[in-house]
Design a protein around this nucleic acid. Structure first.
Lengths: 131, 131, 131, 131
DNA sequence: GTGGTCTAGACCACG
DNA sequence: GTGGTCTAGACCACT
């Protein structure tokens, strides 16, 4: 299973949301498919060196959102894939993120060409991606 | 002066950050230029219907980042641009912003090509500026 | 951990700055090292008998200057040192600090030689450190 | 009369205190002697490009501290010279300023030798000084 | 428990 | 009028 979770401790986005979003992303790019199992709470908490309550919170959210389902005593499994957001919602979120990014780096003094190049370079580092 | 601040209450991004980002954006698109004055803390607080400390916090941040300068008893003004950060720090901050952005939008399911296009489109807005 | 903060109420230098300066000083003389935790906002506020927001403001400044890093729900820690500022900015800040200091003590009537001697004597305290 | 006042607008020490301290300093180094006249409020305010109330406040303080005396319709004159501070007070103030300066620049990463050199260089720029 | 955000309201210093 | 500091107390998110 080519599925991996990495968290940033210093980030402003909480750890449990990082986990949720990374699972969502893995589902979106089909790195995780229906029926695939997720690591156990304790093993993942152990691996990420975070409190197991944090992982539990993320898993609860995934279940609440219908992305995963829990089977008592067996673990967590990916549920049927559904489209998670509407097109408009996706575009709105994209623009929100993009505008913050652009504002930040423009104020740092980066030029347009440098911004494009920089993004391309960071994208190149990302391993598993369609396109 | 065609400069306006609007905030979204109930957003997950704190009010003071919304203010900071909008001022940054205004500077980036040259709606605010060196020497321009910002609305007074209390008048802006009044207009946005938030507490004046919230505006003060935003303004403090702008001062800390070298974007504005404060003159006691006179008000806040857009500062002359100076190269505050070292090359490494600039790169670090760029990567931090870029990784956050890339992480966010990849999780939303956008593809590399879409991300590049999206950024280019958002950058078009700031055509007035360098590069 | 031989680290203690004491404040003078009624001083003309604000409480939050006293805290910032004492933490900086502790780091300078290596009484605080990378990874060391700072007292929690509320416990320090309690101990100093000041409002927790005042401590929070001091801690925010330390984070902004890259001296500390905050981990939500865990506490504040001394950050790894990084070269935050550009050469020009470092020089500018040095000169700013130096000019303020020189101005202050010249106005007190100290002579050049006394100033140099005085600084050397204060620097002796931080003998543990570089150079 | 080799007496000059220069103010820093961006400083954290208020303009009126800068004026007071510079007059005190001039008295301390005998650039101003008993009976010397000070510039008129309006002329000084004009020269420094500050509000004349600010100059008036400074002059009031100088009179209140017994450093100057006002003669109605004629202007302000330096009063008899007295020692302004006790030795202990002077030393305490020196150390306070020195410690803040040292703390600041050490945190900026400057080394002891650089600090001494830097101070010497800034002192060299100061024009009128005994020693 | 931790830090982060916000409000309401006060007082001060400066111009 | 301006910004700066501080208090008291609330609520939230995270671990």
């Amino acid at each position: 299973m080519n599925f991996q979770i990495n968290i940033l401790l210093g980030s402003d986005v909480p750890i449990y949301r990082q986990i949720v979003e990374q699972v969502k992303h893995a589902v979106a790019i089909a790195a995780l498919k229906e029926g695939d199992s997720l690591p156990s709470i304790r093993s993942l908490a152990n691996r990420l060196v975070v409190n197991h309550n944090t992982v539990a919170k993320a898993y609860n959210l995934l279940v609440a959102e219908g992305i995963a389902r829990s089977e008592k005593g067996r673990g967590l499994f990916i549920a049927t894939h559904r489209n998670l957001y509407s097109k408009e919602e996706l575009r709105r979120r994209f623009n929100e993120s993009a505008d913050r990014f652009v504002g930040d780096v423009l104020m740092l003094g980066f030029k347009k060409s440098e911004i494009i190049e920089g993004i391309q370079s960071r994208l190149a580092d990302v391993a598993i991606l369609k396109d």
